[in-house]
């Protein structure tokens, strides 16, 4: 049986969490928006060829042989309905905190998501994801501000576009690497 890690996709409604997941897991992009109710769940095996580079731990060969699956929970982004979904945070090993680079509020609300994640899942590794970078003319947040935010948390920042398939795989591989690092080397 392969190794597995529960992962959360967090962030305000309409930032593109479900699209990121659909792009990563199925290679598709849906144009029309449908709000996630409760949560969405997908299992995806991680391509370890890049992930294991530079990592050194005792069970590395066994890990490579058995493989690594992310159990990805895409959590409903309506923060006021979060009480319904808090239960889903339990036992997570990593998270993506996603915001829409064209919507300032989604960036300002990152703190709420990080706080909620830390209180419910503990001090787990996460990746900050700035989505919709294809909409260059509509950027609502200074790139400098975004980079400062990532530095403040001490986490990787990945600028993605689910629509144009920009750095989606990289985001998942980065988080997978952080999870493996934390689980095996700390």
């Amino acid at each position: 049986m392969s190794y597995r890690g529960k992962t959360l996709l967090l962030g305000n409604a309409e930032v593109g969490k479900t699209s990121i997941l659909a792009r990563y897991a199925e290679g598709i992009f849906k144009d029309e928006y449908e709000a996630t109710i409760g949560a969405n769940f997908i299992v995806k095996e991680i391509d370890l060829s890049n992930v294991l580079k530079g990592l050194d731990f005792e069970d590395k060969e066994d890990f490579r042989k058995k493989g690594f699956k992310l159990y990805i929970w895409d959590i409903c982004g309506q923060y006021d309905k979060l009480f319904v979904t808090e239960y889903y945070f339990y036992n997570a090993l990593g998270a993506f905190v996603v915001f829409d680079i064209t919507k300032e509020k989604s960036f300002n609300d990152i703190n709420l998501w990080v706080e909620k994640m830390k209180s419910l899942s503990g001090d787990i590794p996460f990746v900050l994801v700035a989505n919709k970078v294809d909409l260059k003319n509509d950027f609502a947040i200074e790139e400098r501000e975004i980079e400062e935010k990532a530095q403040e948390y001490g986490v990787p920042l990945i600028k993605t576009s689910a629509k144009k398939n920009i750095k989606i795989d990289l985001a998942f591989e980065t988080l997978a690497k952080l999870i493996i690092e934390k689980s095996f080397t700390e």
């Binding site: 529960k6 949560a39 769940f41 299992v43 239960y87 889903y88 036992n91």
Partner: peptide, 13 residues
């Protein structure tokens, strides 16, 4: 009939 409900979210639903 048997009606089951989602009650485990530890790893997979």
């Amino acid at each position: 009939f048997i009606l089951t409900t989602l009650d485990q979210v530890q790893d997979a639903p």
